[in-house]
Design a protein around this nucleic acid. Structure first.
Length: 296
DNA sequence: AAACCGTGGGT
DNA sequence: TACCCAAGGTT
């Protein structure tokens, strides 16, 4: 049972969302659950602007899980292009196969079944259940966590993530009606993404500024635990993996280790990257010192 | 459970 | 310019 404060915030956000929501294509009424699932995979740690063109191309080419599962994983990895974290492309391909095998080609509604799909975790499972099927589940992403931290807890930043705590916090605020709950989930994320942003929040444009505990407290600085800082990307193994994957995507034939050395001369680091990609199934050896994308 | 996993937008 | 950080998931 949501508190009066939560009910009040939900009502305000509902009205705000009605005209402030960006017209994102995966929010259209006629998109399939599969198209929603694809969008959620792509949006993991990746901004909307970068996802839009890849999503359009993907669902045009593969409008159903079966159509994707019928092609080799290499095609999924190529279509993923430079979205980043290419394991997601592999996982989405695998999830499509699982949907065909276990669910007759239809994206399952059930939370447990969704969570069992490769690459689907607590966020993605609830996002699909809520946004594609209208089921009443709390959906918590990084935006939601920041909005709750500020508006409800009065803190500048969210504490390090805790699935159980974060879901409980959002669950306690969730409207009882499933339709209202879906809007509340989406509106809270939207507010965090466009107004209550991490770096420079636009509090003067915020629809719930009068109800915001952080604002009421005078915008105190964050004093809690900080999340770990991301390692430097330049010169990292991640960068090398990315460069190797770019070569493998572009070459529609095996690429020799000698060729890869031209993109990254540090052979120890290159070998580490290749070994990692082989272990992840993003690359396969041709048995003769050359590498390609997985064909099956 | 802390660390790892890409790429680029925003400031 | 550098640096932060982004609709997370897996091991």
């Amino acid at each position: 049972m949501p508190s009066e404060t939560a009910t009040s915030i939900a009502g305000t956000l509902h009205d705000w969302f009605a005209d402030a929501a960006r017209p994102l294509p995966w929010r259209a009424a006629d998109v399939s659950p599969w198209a929603v699932l694809v969008s959620e995979f792509m949006l993991q740690q990746t901004q909307v602007a970068r996802v839009l063109p890849r999503w359009e191309a993907w669902i045009t080419r593969w409008p159903t899980p079966a159509r994707l599962a019928a092609e080799p994983p290499s095609e999924a990895v190529r279509a993923w292009d430079r979205l980043g974290y290419p394991r997601r492309a592999l996982w989405l391909h695998r999830a499509a196969a699982e949907i065909v095998e276990r669910h007759g080609g239809e994206v399952p509604h059930d939370l447990e079944a969704l969570l069992a799909l490769q690459g689907v975790g607590p966020y993605t499972a609830r996002a699909v259940a809520a946004f594609a099927f209208g089921l009443r589940h709390p959906v918590v992403d990084t935006n939601t966590r920041r909005v709750i931290a500020r508006a409800v807890a009065g803190q500048a930043e969210a504490a390090p993530p805790s699935v159980a705590r974060d879901l409980a916090a959002m669950g306690a605020m969730l409207p009882a009606d499933a339709g209202e709950a879906r809007v509340f989930n989406a509106a809270t994320m939207e507010l965090g993404a466009t107004v209550c942003t991490a770096r420079t929040p636009r509090c003067d444009e915020c629809p719930i500024s009068s109800q915001c505990a952080w604002r009421a407290a005078g915008y105190p600085a964050y004093t809690g635990a900080r999340k770990a800082v991301q390692a430097r990307f330049e010169g990292s193994d991640r960068q090398v993996r990315g460069l190797v994957m770019r070569e493998l995507r572009a070459a529609h034939r095996p690429v020799s280790r000698a060729e890869l050395e031209r993109t990254w001369p540090d052979t120890a680091q290159l070998d580490r990257a290749i070994a990692g990609l082989l272990a992840d199934g993003l690359a396969v050896s041709d048995g003769d010192d050359a590498f390609g994308l997985p064909q099956s």
